[in-house]
Amino acid sequence: MNIVVCMKQVPDTETKIRLKEGNGGIQTDGVKWIINPYCEFAVEEALRIRERNGGQGTVTLVCMGPDRAVESIRTALAMGVDKAIHLNDPLFEGSDNFGVAKILARAIQTIPHDIILCGKQAVDDDASQVPQILAEQLNIPHVMVVEKMEVDVANKKVTTSRRIEGGAKEVLEVPLPAVFGADKGMNEPRYASLPGIMKAKSKEVKKVTAADLGLKPEEIGVAAAKVKIQAYSLPPERQAGKKIEGGDPAQVAHELAKWLREEARVI
């Protein structure tokens, strides 16, 4: 069983987002970079699938990102991933979801793959598109918001359940190869052991560029983006919350309900 995990490095969810001057996106100095939490579920699930399969198979990590992504790649290797492909080329920068999926697809086509695990979304752009586009480009099925996977190695298929609205779940049977988008709650990602961290230092991380994948500059990056970012903005500073003291409970409750509906828009 060959398992490929696509991983993205993102700023820690606690990072205070500050914008660069002009329109250059967010300031990255002082940002703590982590493995996208959903990708971490994907890494963990890949390792568990292999463990359940008696340790048979290879788990390969594919990660697109600049040099700094190596640190996250090493973390995944420390968790137990066998080897990694680091898609690292300035030409990749500024790619939109379509572009990223294209680059990933090219890289994955060069290696054996039965199961492709992704996080259901990255917590930086929150787009939740790459897994589906990737599956389409590889012409294989995808299942998103996956919370459980049972792999039938002999018949090359996966029985999986995914969350849909209203707390309901769909149970699907998927022929392999296929792309799976991991959701929270799928597993509890392991804490890399110290020997794992030591071993990770000597595991293979293959750097791959656009040229290696036969991608031309005009096919990727900002130039090829179908969705172009025009501007970044910050939400208004968080206002000090409303606070009501005393008053008639019925009236206060009415005010709150109205606020929830019309201003907070959560119901």
């Binding site: 606690e14 205070k16 002082g30 703590k32 982590i34």
Partner: peptide, 26 residues
């Protein structure tokens, strides 16, 4: 890795934000 999940959360938070609650280091 046999440490309770809560303790692991604290360790992870310390790793990422250098405090056990995981509140933004900045």
């Amino acid at each position: 890795g046999k440490i309770s999940p809560e303790a692991q959360t604290a360790l992870r938070n310390i790793e990422n934000n250098s405090n056990p609650w995981g509140i933004g280091a900045d």
